[in-house]
Amino acid sequence: MADHHAHHHDTGGHHHHHGILHTHAPTGKMGKAFVLTCAILIVELIGGWFSHSLALMSDAGHVLTDVFAIGLSWFAIRQSVKPADESMTFGYARSGILAALVNGLTLIVITLWILMEAYRRLQHPGHVHSLWMFISASVGLCVNLYLALGMRHEENLNVKSAVLHMLGDAAASAGVIVAGIIISFTHWYIVDPLLSIAIAVLIAFGAWRIVRQTMKILMEGTPQTVDFRAVVDELKALPGIQDVHDVHVWAITSGQNALSCHAVLDGNMTIRDSQQVLRDAEHCLAHFGIGHVTIQIEDGSHPHENRELCAHKEDALEHHHH
Results as ranks from 00 to 15, higher is better:
G47K: 00
D280Y: 08
G48R: 06
A316G: 12
D273T: 14
V63S: 05
G19M: 00
E282W: 10
W188N: 15
N103I: 02
F90E: 00
R120V: 02
L157K: 15
R121A: 08
D192T: 00
A237P: 14
K32Y: 15
L238V: 13
S138E: 01
L265I: 08
A137W: 07
I135S: 10
I108R: 11
I297K: 09
H4Y: 08
V244T: 04
I182D: 06
E234I: 12
D233Q: 01
R229E: 14
L112T: 11
I70Q: 03
H319R: 09
G291E: 08
H18I: 00
I297S: 03
T89R: 06
M1T: 10
I20C: 03
A251I: 01
K32Q: 11
K216Q: 15
L285D: 03
V232F: 14
V139F: 07
A39I: 09
L21D: 11
N103D: 09
S95K: 11
L167I: 14
L202E: 04
C284W: 00
I77S: 08
P303W: 12
H127Y: 12
G300W: 06
Q79M: 13
L195P: 10
N306M: 12
E314S: 07
I114K: 06
R94W: 12
F288G: 05
D59L: 03
A2G: 12
F90W: 06
A263H: 02
P303Q: 08
K29Q: 11
N257C: 03
T214P: 06
L265A: 05
S53Q: 04
D266K: 04
K32N: 15
